[in-house]
Design a protein around this nucleic acid. Structure first.
Lengths: 340, 340
DNA sequence: CCTGAGATTGGGAGCGCTCCCACTTCTGTC
DNA sequence: GACAGAAGTGGGAGCGCTCCCAATCTCAGG
């Protein structure tokens, strides 16, 4: 052994230098207990001297784990990558994973071939778990992965009856608080610009809107609810249409800040003052929410916490495969600025 | 051997089923030559029957390569992730890598600790190469990686004297063509909104602007050049300032579409018609360039090709470590819409 | 000073694959 | 029909690490 004193040092070389066995060095680098402090120090010194870094492929092979998880994104998600909501969550995920010593693999799944490839990665032992961003109701990928025994955590859920672990914000509660705030401001003709109904998150926010109206004893007028698709353009159109059909509208709850921003544009174009004539509340608290004219009152989702929680649940699931699934809902917070 | 008929099948089990040796199966799955067609078929049948997928950790360990490359992003890049330019390049990179059977690791490098971690990954044999997005002039990370012998490819360059492999668009030529187009349209008071001068790409585009003016025999007026930071907001401000100081301006070349979009906003606010009063050209051809009012004339960078070229160079560098570095500049294309 | 439980430690046995060399089986040739 | 060279094939020898059990060491209690 120890033929190569050159090249990357191996655990065996460290052991030889420290005058201990392989097992002991392994215990030290894995921070396992049961090593006498003095021995640990000696090993540590040898590690430093040789500038030793463990070979991860060998570790994976011997340890039967990859120390890596995939961040799976679909074509649709990809476009959302620019959204502050998304990138903040991904950043938090990256941080938490780094702390845990787990690598993040970015996986784009657009075609069936890529989907197949992902499954091969799983079966090839390259990843220990998966984080899926923004799943669509009709997407079966989460089930496929979970059924294959791969620890899987979703950002958001596909329906109220989700059978895979997920982390979600309290969309109903957030929307309800937002609309309650409008009611509290004396508004009565409150419209809502919703997201696509096939997205569960959109339905939740709509539900929150309805509940708040009900709480306030206001009868809901279905024609005050207009559907958008979370983009700014759709918000602008929706608002313009709304103003035509309901000039009396005095408040709008948009299911996303992007749509709220579009609504502001339409309101300005129509000569309405915000918030004097029409109050506007959004959802997400994206970065530009502070910079709209006027600054947007909105519902903040705890992105950082969502990301960290996703990682925590994933790691737990990797440790305890017996738990079928877990759900965590995080509290939202109403950020009052000037638009309402 | 072959104790476990359950669990993931191994290469050895495939060999046993096909009635051949390990070596032969290895040749088949690696698509190596020197296997009789009939044997190959038999092995393939066994692979299909067992639904065999090679264990990647074992492959890495035995083959001394990771089949993975890191996509390294700094904090600053991260914010650009939403930029269409970026995400298109990343998509192309992902596609090309998938075709080559190489995994993409997403690596965020924000702190020195994370930087250290990246180096450990490299030394731990987890990655075979690195793709760095949008490096800053003062960043030494590319040199650190390249000096450590890791094949490295940059998107863009830090200076004219870059000693690491990179792929870049012809920024000078693109800018020159854009401004020449303005000149050709009869414009004479041509302003430019530039990027931060510490970014080489910004300096290149400014150079192209100057060269085009010179070609046209127009004397450059330094006060017509305003600095932005590639964001829409900075473009709006720059344009507003420009209009105040130079009401006679009849054209603007913005070093990015985002800034051009901001300029359009400022122009509308000031009541100028585009392109009748002021012509506007951007750079990048981002997705929304078709949807601005009016649609933006801009310089298109071949994002897809940039991404693919980066991967090609990286793979070449992994094969031929003797080449010190390579530089590839890709041609840009002027996309004429209605703003100029 | 002896004994045994518990704390440490060493190192054999793989993990599943690639590399590579020796061996077998074909070719075609004279 | 014998023979050289090419084509095809088998499997030993690792790759560097973790797991785990047997061996050794420690030290309190008797």
């Amino acid at each position: 052994m120890l033929k190569r004193s050159s090249g990357t040092p191996t655990l065996e070389e460290v052991a030889a230098l420290a005058g201990v066995g392989r097992g002991t060095v392994s215990r030290v680098i894995n921070n396992a207990s049961g090593v006498k402090p003095s021995t640990r120090r000696a090993v540590q010194r040898a590690i430093d001297e040789l500038d030793y870094v463990p070979n991860l492929a060998a570790r994976s092979l011997a340890g039967r784990r990859a120390d890596a998880v995939a961040l799976v994104m679909t074509k649709t998600d990809w476009r959302l990558f620019g959204e502050p909501f998304f990138s903040e969550v991904v950043q938090a995920v990256g941080d938490a994973l780094t702390e845990a010593g787990v690598q993040l693999l970015l996986t784009l799944v657009r075609t069936d071939a890529e989907r197949q490839r992902l499954v091969e990665y799983v079966r090839g032992g390259r990843i220990d778990g998966a984080l899926l961003m923004s799943v669509r109701a009709e997407d079966r990928l989460p089930d496929m992965l979970a059924d294959a025994g791969l620890p899987t955590v979703l950002l958001g859920r596909r329906s109220g009856d989700e059978r895979v672990t997920y982390v979600d914000a309290d969309n109903v509660g957030g929307a309800r608080a937002a609309v309650a705030h409008l009611v509290g401001g004396g508004r009565r003709a409150i419209a809502s610009i919703t997201g696509p109904p096939e997205m569960y998150v959109a339905r939740c926010r709509l539900r929150g809107y309805r509940e708040a109206l009900k709480d306030a004893g206001i009868d809901e007028d279905p024609s005050l609810v207009v559907q958008g698709d979370f983009t700014e353009t759709s918000g602008r159109r929706a608002m313009a249409g709304l103003l035509e059909r309901h000039p009396e509208v005095d408040a709008v709850f948009a299911a996303s800040d992007s749509m709220a921003a579009g609504a502001l544009t339409a309101l300005h174009a129509a000569g309405r003052r915000v918030p004097q004539d029409v109050a506007v509340v959004g959802f997400d608290d994206f970065e530009l929410a502070e910079q709209t004219e006027p600054p947007l009152t909105t519902v903040r989702q705890p992105m950082e916490e969502i990301g960290r929680t996703m990682v925590r649940l994933l790691l737990e699931e990797m440790d305890q495969p017996e738990v079928a699934w877990r759900h965590v809902i995080l509290r939202t917070r109403l950020v009052v600025r000037e638009s309402a």
